[in-house]
Nucleic acid binder design. Structure first.
Lengths: 124, 124, 124, 124
DNA sequence: GTGGTCTAGACCACA
DNA sequence: GTGGTCTAGACCACA
């Protein structure tokens, strides 16, 4: 459903947060689409419901989904929010690019890397 | 000396590790150059010496510095090590680039960002 | 008919309860006036009839409406009940006013806000 | 420490959130002041640490406090954030005032209530 | 069934 | 000691 890496040091709830944010802001999940329930995701990933709940609540707080208690959670996708999400992704990109250059990598190498990614993006 | 962000959730020792790694692998600190002592850095940053010590130990472990007991620590800069460092910076770069694209940002936008960085690199 | 917010975390039945209470205690709905049926309201709002039913039952319990089986529900508007409703509205008002002041807002600002509302009341 | 009402339907973490928000935005807690630890508050209130943790994390997310892992939590008090907090308090005030008026209460009555509160605010 | 809150407790990295 | 994450489980109101 939402692929995560149980091992690895980034917290589970954060992986979920990132992955779902990606799916929504890229348009892979469309507005007002129903999200899988907290319990479904938890069971599917073999993870405690509280952990999934935490991710969902943060998504709601950020305005990416809205949840109607006793009904379910739905994709919200406010444009202004999506933009700040993209802003943040861009900021993180800038930071890692700067770090790479400061580590002695040539800008051209980085551009080439981006071109390599152009074809094979993944939105399962 | 080494600028860090005392707030912010990335651990202090990790910030130090990253910053110094950058300075060494970019050539800003040259081979066999003497590093400031643990105590100097700790005092300068208003941080526990243990924290600085931890960063130094990891740098030594990775072969970026070497320490001569009772004398001090020095920049090692083995080429093979620097290369693996660059590899890691590149890996992190790839990851953030992929994330940015998956979030709906255009590859061209990312390339433009890199060009913007080309001029104003060299660290604070 | 009765405007509610299908999103938003206050339960639907409670929104209905509040809205209708307002309409009755303000005099917008007059004594012995016939209420729309549960089914009408449910259909109109796209909501489960049980939810509307719950609101109606509580209104009846509080003495704001009375129902004649097989005929329908009617506005009761007992003065003593209306007064306790007003008491509650006042209590909630006091609480939010206190909170506003404790948050650092000036009492004068609050009084001005009330004056602003004086003109444009009467509900949507 | 932070008085809350264990009974009563508003969730504990939300009461804590509101109370602390009040204390910070009113100036009762000053910038960079150290907050009691999660465990202290939990023990003091006879409540699970997770519950307090939740309140603290939401406060941090909203920019009212910042926490340094392994050190403690501190009052942040960004002015822009405080302003939005006041905005929200004002919005809630407007809503309850409108509701009171729509319920048939006279604006003058409300103003008088505010005057009553002017003297006896509480910031323990 | 659904989201939401809470407890009791464990474990972690960091300082 | 400190904040942070997570589990296993219970209970609640609402639909």
């Amino acid at each position: 459903m939402f692929s995560i890496d149980i091992r690895g040091k980034t917290p589970i709830y954060e992986q979920l947060l990132n992955r779902i944010t990606e799916l929504i802001s890229s348009g892979a999940m469309s507005e007002n689409e129903r999200m899988p329930t907290v319990r479904e995701v938890a069971k599917d990933l073999g993870v405690n419901p509280n952990t999934v709940q935490k991710a969902y609540q943060m998504l709601e707080q950020r305005g990416l989904i809205y949840s109607i208690p006793a009904k379910g959670s739905y994709v919200a996708k406010s444009d202004t929010v999506i933009n700040t999400v993209k802003e943040q992704a861009l900021a993180r990109f800038r930071e890692s690019a700067l770090n790479a250059i400061n580590s002695g990598l040539e800008p051209n190498v980085l551009k080439t890397e981006i071109e390599k990614l152009e074809g094979g993006t993944k939105n399962d």
